[in-house]
Amino acid sequence: MPNIKSAKKRMRSSEGRRIGNLAVKTRVRSARRKAREALEAGVAETAGVAVREYSSVLDKAVKRGVVTKNTAIRRKKRATEALRKLEA
């Protein structure tokens, strides 16, 4: 346990940030799973909606600083490519 006042405050604030980041990461994983399942199901309409939702969630995670920009771009690109392959 910290003895210094600023260290105690830092511990409280980092715990709050950890919980917030955990919520965002969970949201990203759920959207990713839904997109993957929709793509595997082979229905282009539902897959398109799921991929758009996944892209939106990734962008919000980048804005919060939970996921880096390049990681989000790479994941969105792969999901979009899978969607295009399904539509073709």
Rank of each mutant, 00 (worst) to 15 (best):
R18N: 02
V24E: 12
L86K: 00
A23W: 12
V57R: 14
S55P: 06
S6G: 02
V57T: 14
K77R: 08
S13R: 11
T46W: 01
S6I: 00
A7H: 08
A79L: 03
K77M: 13
T80D: 07
V67W: 01
L39F: 01
V67D: 08
A35P: 08
V43N: 13
N3F: 07
M1G: 04
R17H: 07
V66T: 02
P2N: 02
A72I: 15
A47L: 02
K77Y: 10
T80G: 04
A7G: 00
G42Y: 13
K63F: 03
E15R: 04
T46S: 11
R27Q: 14
T26A: 15
K63N: 07
V62Q: 14
S6P: 04
M1T: 01
S13A: 03
I19C: 05
K34L: 05
A50Q: 05
M11G: 09
V67Y: 03
K34R: 14
R36I: 00
E15I: 01
E15K: 06
A41M: 00
N3W: 09
V67I: 13
K77S: 10
A79M: 05
V49S: 06
M1S: 05
K63V: 15
K5F: 06
I73T: 12
R29S: 12
A44P: 02
R52L: 09
N3I: 14
V67G: 02
R10P: 02
E15Q: 08
V67L: 12
K85T: 10
V49A: 03
K5A: 14
S13P: 01
E40N: 11
K8H: 02
A61Y: 05
K69Q: 14
V51P: 10
A72N: 15
K8Y: 03
T71F: 08
L83K: 04
L86T: 00
A50E: 04
G20C: 09
S14V: 00
A35I: 08
V49Q: 11
G65M: 13
I73K: 12
L58K: 13
L83R: 04
V49T: 12
V24K: 14
T80N: 01
V67T: 07
R32M: 04
G20H: 15
K34I: 05
P2L: 01
R84E: 13
E15W: 06
R36F: 10
R64L: 10
L39M: 11
M1L: 07
A44R: 08
G42W: 04
A82S: 15
R17F: 08
T26G: 06
K34C: 04
A41N: 07
R74M: 10
T71S: 15
R10K: 06
A50L: 12
R52G: 07
E15L: 03
S55C: 13
R10S: 02
R32F: 09
R17M: 10
A79R: 07
A61K: 05
T80C: 00
G65N: 09
L39G: 02
K34W: 14
G20W: 13
D59A: 14
V49H: 09
A88L: 06
P2Q: 08
K34P: 00
N21E: 14
E37R: 03
T26S: 15
A47R: 00
V57Q: 03
T71D: 14
I73D: 14
R29G: 04
L39S: 03
V66E: 09
A72P: 13
A72W: 07
I73F: 12
K5E: 04
A38T: 00
V62H: 13
K8M: 06
R78F: 00
E53H: 15
E40C: 03
T26C: 05
E45N: 06
P2K: 05
E53Q: 14
